[in-house]
Design a protein around this nucleic acid. Structure first.
Ligand SMILES: [Mn+2]
Ligand SMILES: [Mn+2]
Ligand SMILES: [Zn+2]
Ligand SMILES: [Zn+2]
Lengths: 138, 138
DNA sequence: TCCTACGATGGACCTAGTCCAAGTCAATAC
DNA sequence: GTATTGACTTGGACTAGGTCCATCGTAGGA
């Protein structure tokens, strides 16, 4: 969405061509790209963009809460712009394909106080793993 | 436990000094070591053991289901010998300390069929993140 | 005791990601 | 419009975590 760019400008983000293309590449709702995939797509629009800038920009978007990092069992992290609707992920352990899933209820509240050991718990990441229809005929 | 070694021998595992020390190092219930930590402790007992062997052995223990891998947001994987009692993890995002937690119920059944998209879902990993008591005074 | 297939070794290699000194430019001020 | 400047970008070196492989060693069966 271009209102992502609006929001960022409103937060005092200095708008550069590089940041714009990274934000554009992440446009959409079922996007789970690796940093290298973001780089490839950004390079198609702005050939001189560098890897370091892609990593910097992704890191900033994450700390602004506009993008969430999805960690994937030994593979490269994926960057998910769908940060405003909480959801979880279903990953094919064969080919790595990711689907968004929305189980009911907040998994954070499933953790009773007696199991928190004085921690301030602020986040929970749930990853379901299995085989996608394509990989099922293993 | 030494009955881990028993079980492994029963499965036809060829018993070597290296495999024995790796299994011994992983002895215990609240153990979440990285491969490098396993290597360091194994080296203390058997100085000539190699990094490759530690990785090989950990990989085998994982595929035998005797150890589970815990992935940790950009840090090194951790190896958890507590594979027979299902549990989840609470991680301090500051210092990386891990606690075992046992929320009630099977999180796998929380995912309705309508949210499975034809996948054969076999596994779920839940990671709670927050600050441990020591790191709370940030 | 001998044999051999399975396991161990160490060093090269790889991928994902971080860091840095130097150059560039967006935004503000005039 | 021009000057200024600190924030942003760059490419390449660097690191951590992990894999691969040719060769050597040995556990366990005959
Ligand atoms: Mn998602
Ligand atoms: Mn554990
Ligand atoms: Zn698949
Ligand atoms: Zn901590």
């Amino acid at each position: 969405m271009s209102d992502l760019l609006e929001r960022l400008r409103g937060r005092g983000w200095r708008m550069t061509a590089q940041r714009r293309v990274v934000a554009e590449v992440l446009n959409g709702d079922h996007v789970h790209l690796t940093a290298d995939e973001v780089l490839a797509r950004a390079t198609a629009r702005l050939p001189e963009i560098s890897r370091a800038t892609v990593y910097n920009t992704l890191g900033e978007l994450v700390s602004l809460g506009e993008v969430v990092e999805v960690t994937a069992h030994g593979r490269a992290k994926r960057y998910d712009p769908n940060a405003h609707r909480p959801h979880q992920h279903l990953v094919c352990s064969e080919c790595g394909t990711i689907r968004d899933v929305h189980p009911g209820g907040d998994p954070l509240t499933d953790l009773p106080d007696s199991e928190r050991f004085g921690y301030t718990v602020s986040e929970v990441e749930v990853t379901y793993r299995g085989h996608c229809p394509d990989c099922a005929g293993l």
